[in-house]
């Protein structure tokens, strides 16, 4: 099997199984999935909380604070998992850094991107076979997931830091974000919009994963479970 450098396209058969996603990558993926669900739900609730009127004294209620604690805790796990993933991009295998550093300076990568785009636009009938992410998926992952996640993590920590006075604790680390945006309402708005940006990514990502798994030549969903990119047919 021959694989084109920089785009990951299989140029010559026979197709063989490849170990693509190492255990830390898979672990990170599913932790992120697990965390994003409560994060989106509690995040939305923080922006538009239901009111628990008529629940008696405030002393005996801690409803909204629980929503926020869940949000903060999940966010911490999400961020730590992301940090670990960045670390793995450096020390992991060849496929581990493809979503952080798409080789945009390579012609083969761009050609691959347009081949895949043409396939999705029904211009090109037959799909190509890819090891790892195809260039279009890489671009999507980088633009939507990596940038979205970095934005939501940085703005999130900046908002979290607000419970400390300026120059203290987390504020020391993330106070600059508020200066960058001018004022903290802008940080909130960006954080809020980043959630929708990631939700749009999630829709596209799940759709593409299922579509490729059903219509494409290679396995996609099981790859994120066992790490192995297998092909349904052996001929290229």
């Amino acid at each position: 099997m021959k694989i084109e450098k920089y785009s990951g396209r299989v140029t010559e058969g026979p197709l063989e199984n490849v170990y693509v996603y190492e255990a830390p990558v898979r672990l990170w993926h599913w932790i992120t999935v697990l965390m994003m669900i409560p994060l989106a739900v509690t995040g939305y609730l923080i922006g538009d909380p239901p009111s628990v009127t008529g629940a008696g004294e405030a002393t005996f209620n801690y409803t909204f604070a629980w929503v926020r604690i869940i949000h903060f805790s999940c966010a911490m796990i999400f961020a730590v998992a992301f940090l670990m993933r960045v670390y793995w991009a450096i020390v992991g295998n060849h496929y581990a850094h493809s979503l952080f550093l798409p080789p945009v300076w390579r012609l083969a990568w761009w050609k691959g991107l347009f081949r895949q785009l043409a396939y999705y636009l029904f211009i090109k009938k037959e799909p190509d076979s890819w090891i790892g992410h195809n260039p279009l998926a890489q671009a999507g992952m980088f633009m939507m997931f990596v940038l979205g996640a970095v934005t939501i993590i940085v703005t999130g920590f900046a908002l979290y830091a607000q419970q400390w006075a300026s120059g203290q604790s987390w504020m020391l680390l993330f106070g600059w974000v508020h200066c960058l945006f001018g004022e903290s309402q802008a940080v909130r708005t960006v954080h809020h919009l980043a959630m929708y940006y990631l939700l749009v990514f999630v829709i596209l990502h799940i759709y593409m994963a299922f579509r490729e798994d059903i219509m494409g030549k290679e396995t996609v969903i099981s790859t994120m479970v066992n790490g192995i990119r297998a092909f349904k047919t052996k001929d290229h």
């Binding site: 009127t53 209620n61 409803t63 607000q162």
Partner: peptide, 21 residues
């Protein structure tokens, strides 16, 4: 260095989820 919110006397209602609609 701190927000109005951090020292607001209505803050317990915020944590309790008791809001004026």
């Amino acid at each position: 260095s701190q927000r109005i919110h951090d020292k607001c006397y209505r803050r317990p209602h915020f944590d309790a989820g008791q809001f004026v609609e």
